[in-house]
Simulated scan of single mutants.
Amino acid sequence: MIPRHAKIKFNGGRGALLCNTCNTIIRQNFDPHTIEDKKWYCERHTNEINSPRPQRSGEELRR
């Protein structure tokens, strides 16, 4: 089964797995049937997603 959540593009018969946010190529030349069906992110966006967000005080939220 071809993944539904992963971004996969083909160019000249070569498969490329792309970041779901910025379309950076993460992996090339693979069988799309063996890829895990999930959203994939490049290193930059993986770090942004996994980094804790700073807590804002109630004062800042009221502005």
Score class of each variant (00 low, 15 high):
Met1Lys: 03
Pro3Ile: 10
Pro3His: 13
Arg4Met: 09
His5Asn: 10
His5Gln: 11
Ala6Met: 13
Ile8Gln: 06
Ile8Met: 06
Lys9Ile: 13
Lys9Met: 08
Phe10Lys: 04
Asn11Glu: 09
Gly12Phe: 03
Gly13Tyr: 07
Gly13Ser: 12
Arg14Tyr: 07
Leu17His: 03
Leu17Thr: 04
Leu18Ile: 03
Asn20His: 12
Thr21Met: 04
Cys22Tyr: 05
Cys22Ser: 10
Thr24Gly: 04
Ile26Gln: 09
Ile26Gly: 05
Arg27Ala: 06
Pro32Arg: 04
Ile35Ser: 04
Ile35His: 02
Ile35Leu: 15
Glu36Tyr: 05
Glu36Arg: 09
Asp37Ala: 04
Asp37Lys: 02
Asp37Leu: 07
Lys38Tyr: 05
Lys38Cys: 13
Lys39Arg: 15
Lys39Leu: 13
Lys39Pro: 04
Tyr41Asn: 07
Tyr41Ile: 03
Cys42Lys: 01
Cys42Tyr: 01
Glu43Pro: 01
Arg44Ala: 14
Arg44Thr: 14
Thr46Gly: 00
Thr46Phe: 05
Asn47Leu: 09
Glu48Ala: 04
Glu48Gln: 00
Ile49Gln: 03
Ile49Asp: 00
Ile49Cys: 02
Pro52Ala: 06
Pro52Phe: 08
Arg53Gly: 12
Arg53Val: 15
Arg53Pro: 01
Arg53Phe: 14
Pro54Gln: 15
Pro54Asn: 12
Gln55Arg: 05
Gln55Trp: 10
Gln55Phe: 11
Ser57Asp: 11
Ser57Trp: 06
Gly58Ser: 14
Gly58Gln: 12
Glu59His: 00
Arg63Ala: 11
Arg63Val: 14
Arg63Trp: 06
